[in-house]
């Protein structure tokens, strides 16, 4: 049954598969828990997903460009420790730009090694993951950092504030998603990222500056990490020196769930947002049902594989792989 459906309406369903799954989960959870669909709960899920979400926007763009970025987790630790530590030393108005510049430098190193030297992105960002984690530890001397005066700083608005009754992290996440969605779908840069990810050789043969485009995707990724770090630092008003550990793979999971192909050339920011929200709602729903938080991981496992499987199956027109 499923197979014939897939054949008939294949690509259309596959494209909306994540949306369908999302709706199914939402209905299921709302039937099981009254609080699930309450405005408070939805807002809190949105707010919690903002950090992963902002990072996922950047990673989506890198992946559409045909590469991976596993260094975002370490980079988040780096940026958060830096902004929190500098906050008390030079004040937030300087700490933020200094941290953003430093994080962009890390992104530029990624971009240089991968975009210009053409080294394999998985290995480079794996190396950067390790190196940046080391940098954080060296910088902090292995200590965690804190902001002393937590109530008297305007830095709090990014993580704890609200505008028009909507928490700032949600506003930042939503705005960024929209901006980058527009860039990726309607501007020449977006078209070029898709082309370079889809076929780098043909892009060069079409006069596209491939190195430059890939370099830019890593700068964007680093920028997103820096923004996520501002939200995180502001919310926690402190930072552990390994706060971002493991984020890289959670972020990647959300991106994949959103249907972005790891082969490059296709993907969408808005569907990544759905992927992020879906993971967040699953966790939230399970907690409301009285399950421990880590059951989310089990569900995520199944959801990722089924989602990508259906996508792959729709493309090849049969459910099971033909390899013997």
């Amino acid at each position: 049954m499923l197979l014939t459906r897939l054949k008939a309406g294949g690509p259309a369903i596959a494209k909306q598969g994540i949306l369908v799954a999302f709706i199914v989960f939402m209905i299921a959870f709302s039937l099981m828990s009254d609080r699930f669909l309450s405005a408070d709960n939805i807002m809190s899920v949105f707010r919690q997903s903002a950090i992963i979400g902002v990072m996922a926007i950047g990673v989506t763009i890198v992946v559409i460009g045909g590469n991976l970025d596993l260094s975002v987790g370490s980079m988040l630790s780096f940026a958060t420790v830096l902004v929190v530590d500098l906050h008390d030393k030079i004040g937030p108005e300087l700490a933020i730009p200094v941290m953003v510049m430093a994080t962009l430098c890390l992104g530029a190193i990624n971009g240089f090694l991968i975009g210009i030297l053409r080294l394999n992105s998985l290995i480079v960002t794996l190396g950067m993951l390790s190196a940046i984690q080391g940098l954080v530890l060296i910088y902090s001397g292995g200590q965690n950092v804190d902001i002393v005066d937590q109530s008297g700083t305007w830095f709090a608005i990014f993580g704890r504030g609200a505008m028009f009754g909507i928490a700032t992290p949600i506003i930042i996440f939503g705005t960024l998603a929209l901006i980058f969605h527009i860039i990726m779908t309607t501007m020449p840069f977006g078209r070029r990222v898709h082309a370079v990810g889809g076929n780098p050789t043909a892009s060069v043969f079409s006069g596209i500056p491939r190195s430059h485009v890939v370099f830019m995707t890593y700068l964007i990724s680093a920028l997103c990490v820096a923004i996520a770090a501002i939200i995180l630092g502001s919310r926690v008003m402190g930072s552990q020196n390994n706060v971002g550990q493991g984020y890289e793979l959670q972020v990647l999971a959300a991106v994949i769930l959103g249907g972005t192909s790891l082969l490059g050339g296709s993907g969408s920011i808005l569907r990544t947002v759905l992927g992020v929200l879906m993971l967040a709602f699953i966790q939230n729903g399970l907690i409301l049902m009285g399950q421990p938080y880590y059951t989310q991981r089990l569900v995520t496992w199944a959801v990722i594989i089924v989602a990508v499987w259906l996508d792959v199956a729709a493309k090849r027109g049969r459910l099971f792989s033909p390899i013997a």
Binding site: L249, Q250, L252, A253, T295, L298, W301, A302, I304
Partner: peptide, 10 residues
Amino acid sequence: LGAMLGIRGL
């Protein structure tokens, strides 16, 4: 990647 999250969950 899915299994990494899932097995850790286990």
